[in-house]
Computed example of a mutant assay.
Amino acid sequence: MDAAARVHRASFDLALPWLAGLHTPVEDRWFYRERVFRDCELWGAFQGDELTGFVAFRNAWIDQLYIRSEAQGRGIGSRLLDLAKDSSDRLQLWTFQRNTAARRFYERRGFVLIEQSEGTRNEEREPDALYCWTRPLT
Protein backbone atom coordinates (compact mmCIF):
# COMPACT_ATOMS: atom_id res chain seq x y z
CA MET A 1 0.00 0.00 0.00
CA ASP A 2 2.91 2.34 0.61
CA ALA A 3 3.96 2.01 -3.02
CA ALA A 4 0.43 2.87 -4.18
CA ALA A 5 0.42 5.92 -1.93
CA ARG A 6 3.73 7.07 -3.45
CA VAL A 7 2.49 6.56 -7.04
CA HIS A 8 -0.70 8.43 -6.18
CA ARG A 9 1.12 11.40 -4.66
CA ALA A 10 3.70 11.71 -7.45
CA SER A 11 1.06 11.47 -10.21
CA PHE A 12 -1.47 13.69 -8.44
CA ASP A 13 1.01 16.46 -7.67
CA LEU A 14 2.34 16.47 -11.23
CA ALA A 15 -1.12 16.55 -12.85
CA LEU A 16 -2.62 18.98 -10.33
CA PRO A 17 0.22 21.21 -9.09
CA TRP A 18 -2.20 23.75 -7.57
CA LEU A 19 -3.26 20.97 -5.14
CA ALA A 20 0.24 19.60 -4.47
CA GLY A 21 1.04 18.94 -0.85
CA LEU A 22 -2.59 18.62 0.19
CA HIS A 23 -1.66 15.60 2.30
CA THR A 24 1.51 14.40 3.95
CA PRO A 25 3.10 11.06 3.02
CA VAL A 26 1.95 9.70 6.39
CA GLU A 27 -1.65 10.70 5.62
CA ASP A 28 -1.41 9.16 2.14
CA ARG A 29 -0.14 5.85 3.54
CA TRP A 30 -2.91 5.80 6.14
CA PHE A 31 -5.54 6.45 3.45
CA TYR A 32 -4.31 3.58 1.29
CA ARG A 33 -3.91 1.11 4.15
CA GLU A 34 -7.14 1.93 6.00
CA ARG A 35 -9.49 2.90 3.18
CA VAL A 36 -8.42 1.89 -0.31
CA PHE A 37 -7.01 -1.54 0.55
CA ARG A 38 -9.98 -2.28 2.81
CA ASP A 39 -12.73 -1.12 0.44
CA CYS A 40 -11.46 -1.69 -3.09
CA GLU A 41 -10.17 -4.32 -5.44
CA LEU A 42 -6.69 -3.13 -6.36
CA TRP A 43 -4.64 -4.11 -9.42
CA GLY A 44 -1.14 -2.88 -10.16
CA ALA A 45 1.28 -2.69 -13.06
CA PHE A 46 4.96 -3.28 -12.39
CA GLN A 47 8.25 -2.74 -14.11
CA GLY A 48 10.48 -5.21 -12.35
CA ASP A 49 9.77 -4.75 -8.66
CA GLU A 50 8.57 -1.15 -9.04
CA LEU A 51 4.86 -0.28 -9.06
CA THR A 52 4.29 1.95 -12.09
CA GLY A 53 0.51 2.31 -11.84
CA PHE A 54 -2.64 0.95 -10.28
CA VAL A 55 -6.42 0.98 -10.36
CA ALA A 56 -8.68 0.69 -7.31
CA PHE A 57 -12.36 -0.03 -7.90
CA ARG A 58 -15.48 -1.22 -6.08
CA ASN A 59 -19.22 -1.51 -6.62
CA ALA A 60 -19.22 -0.06 -10.15
CA TRP A 61 -16.96 2.85 -9.14
CA ILE A 62 -13.35 3.58 -9.99
CA ASP A 63 -11.91 5.20 -6.89
CA GLN A 64 -8.31 5.62 -8.02
CA LEU A 65 -6.33 5.26 -11.25
CA TYR A 66 -2.78 6.57 -11.24
CA ILE A 67 0.22 5.95 -13.49
CA ARG A 68 3.70 7.28 -12.79
CA SER A 69 4.51 10.07 -15.25
CA GLU A 70 7.47 8.24 -16.79
CA ALA A 71 5.24 5.20 -17.50
CA GLN A 72 2.37 7.13 -19.12
CA GLY A 73 1.66 6.69 -22.82
CA ARG A 74 2.52 2.97 -22.80
CA GLY A 75 -1.01 1.58 -22.48
CA ILE A 76 -0.72 0.80 -18.77
CA GLY A 77 -3.69 2.96 -17.80
CA SER A 78 -5.83 1.44 -20.56
CA ARG A 79 -5.00 -2.10 -19.46
CA LEU A 80 -5.76 -1.30 -15.82
CA LEU A 81 -9.00 0.40 -16.80
CA ASP A 82 -9.95 -2.68 -18.83
CA LEU A 83 -9.55 -4.81 -15.69
CA ALA A 84 -12.10 -2.63 -13.94
CA LYS A 85 -14.40 -2.72 -17.00
CA ASP A 86 -14.25 -6.52 -16.97
CA SER A 87 -15.70 -6.48 -13.44
CA SER A 88 -18.86 -4.53 -14.19
CA ASP A 89 -21.35 -3.56 -16.89
CA ARG A 90 -21.25 0.04 -15.69
CA LEU A 91 -18.55 2.17 -14.07
CA GLN A 92 -18.54 5.69 -12.73
CA LEU A 93 -15.74 7.96 -11.59
CA TRP A 94 -15.05 11.53 -10.58
CA THR A 95 -12.18 13.58 -11.92
CA PHE A 96 -11.36 17.24 -11.60
CA GLN A 97 -12.62 19.54 -14.35
CA ARG A 98 -9.17 21.10 -14.77
CA ASN A 99 -7.52 17.70 -15.23
CA THR A 100 -7.92 17.79 -19.00
CA ALA A 101 -5.49 14.92 -19.61
CA ALA A 102 -7.56 12.58 -17.41
CA ARG A 103 -10.79 13.74 -19.00
CA ARG A 104 -9.44 13.05 -22.50
CA PHE A 105 -8.15 9.66 -21.36
CA TYR A 106 -11.56 8.58 -20.04
CA GLU A 107 -13.53 10.04 -22.94
CA ARG A 108 -11.35 8.17 -25.46
CA ARG A 109 -12.17 4.96 -23.61
CA GLY A 110 -15.92 5.35 -23.77
CA PHE A 111 -16.70 7.32 -20.62
CA VAL A 112 -19.36 10.01 -20.98
CA LEU A 113 -19.67 13.17 -18.90
CA ILE A 114 -22.92 13.05 -16.93
CA GLU A 115 -22.52 15.78 -14.31
CA GLN A 116 -20.28 18.63 -13.23
CA SER A 117 -20.14 20.14 -9.78
CA GLU A 118 -18.50 23.11 -8.13
CA GLY A 119 -16.52 20.79 -5.87
CA THR A 120 -18.46 21.40 -2.68
CA ARG A 121 -18.66 17.64 -2.03
CA ASN A 122 -14.95 16.86 -2.45
CA GLU A 123 -12.18 17.41 0.05
CA GLU A 124 -10.17 19.59 -2.30
CA ARG A 125 -13.10 21.95 -3.02
CA GLU A 126 -12.11 21.67 -6.68
CA PRO A 127 -14.77 21.66 -9.44
CA ASP A 128 -15.18 18.09 -10.60
CA ALA A 129 -16.81 16.00 -13.30
CA LEU A 130 -18.68 12.71 -13.04
CA TYR A 131 -18.14 10.24 -15.86
CA CYS A 132 -19.93 7.02 -16.63
CA TRP A 133 -19.11 4.05 -18.85
CA THR A 134 -21.65 1.40 -19.81
CA ARG A 135 -20.80 -1.88 -21.51
CA PRO A 136 -22.11 -1.80 -25.07
CA LEU A 137 -24.90 -4.25 -25.85
CA THR A 138 -23.77 -7.16 -27.99
Results as ranks from 00 to 15, higher is better:
Gln92Ile: 08
Thr120Gly: 15
Val26Cys: 11
Asn99Gln: 03
His8Trp: 09
Leu130Glu: 07
Ala56Val: 07
Thr100Met: 08
Leu113Phe: 06
Ala56Ile: 08
Val36Ser: 08
Phe12Ile: 07
Asp63Leu: 15
Glu70Gly: 07
Thr120Phe: 15
Ser87Pro: 12
Ala71Cys: 02
Pro25Ala: 10
Asp128Tyr: 02
Phe96Gly: 02
Cys132Arg: 04
Asp89Phe: 11
Arg29Val: 15
Gly48Ser: 11
Leu65Arg: 02
Asp86Lys: 13
Thr120Ile: 15
Ala102Thr: 01
Ser11Ala: 15
Gly53Trp: 00
Pro25Trp: 11
Arg68Asp: 06
Ala15Asp: 03
Ile62Phe: 03
Val112Gly: 08
Thr100Arg: 05
Ala3Leu: 02
Gln116Ile: 07
Glu107Arg: 09
Ala10Asp: 05
Phe12Trp: 14
Arg58Thr: 12
Gln64Val: 13
Ala3His: 02
Trp43Leu: 10
Tyr32Leu: 13
Ile62Lys: 00
Leu83Val: 04
Gly21Gln: 01
Asp49Arg: 09
Arg58Gly: 10
Phe12Tyr: 11
Phe31Thr: 10
Leu93Ile: 01
Arg68Ile: 10
Leu65Asp: 00
Leu16Met: 08
Gly21Asn: 03
Gln72Ile: 03
Leu80Val: 04
Phe54Asp: 04
Phe96Trp: 04
Thr52Gly: 12
Asp86Leu: 13
Pro17Val: 02
Glu118Met: 14
Ser69Phe: 08
Ala45Lys: 00
His23Met: 03
Trp61Gly: 00
Ala15Glu: 06
Arg29Lys: 13
Asn99Tyr: 01
Arg125Asn: 07
Arg74Lys: 13
Arg98Val: 03
Arg33Leu: 13
Gln116Lys: 07
Pro136Ser: 06
Leu81Arg: 00
Glu126Met: 05
Ala71Phe: 02
Gln47Arg: 14
Glu123Asp: 15
Ser117Cys: 10
Thr52Tyr: 10
Ala102Tyr: 01
Val36His: 04
Leu51Val: 02
Thr120Val: 15
Leu65Thr: 01
Ala71Asn: 04
Gln47Trp: 12
Phe46Lys: 07
Leu91Asp: 02
Arg35Ser: 14
Ala3Tyr: 03
His23Val: 05
Arg38Ser: 12
Gln92Glu: 11
Phe105Val: 04
Trp61Asp: 03
Glu123Thr: 15
Arg68Ala: 08
Pro25Arg: 09
Glu118Trp: 11
Leu16Glu: 05
Gln92Arg: 13
His8Asp: 12
His8Ala: 12
Phe105Pro: 05
Arg103Glu: 12
Asn99Ala: 00
Tyr32Asp: 08
Ser69Val: 07
Trp30Asp: 13
Leu65Ile: 03
Glu27Met: 04
Glu118Val: 14
Thr24Lys: 03
Asp89Val: 12
Glu50Gly: 11
Asp13Phe: 13
Asp63Cys: 14
Arg29Tyr: 13
Ile114Cys: 10
Val36Glu: 05
Glu126Arg: 01
Ile67Pro: 01
Ala101Glu: 14
Phe111Lys: 01
Ala4Phe: 05
Ser87Glu: 11
Arg90His: 08
Ala60Gln: 14
Glu34Cys: 09
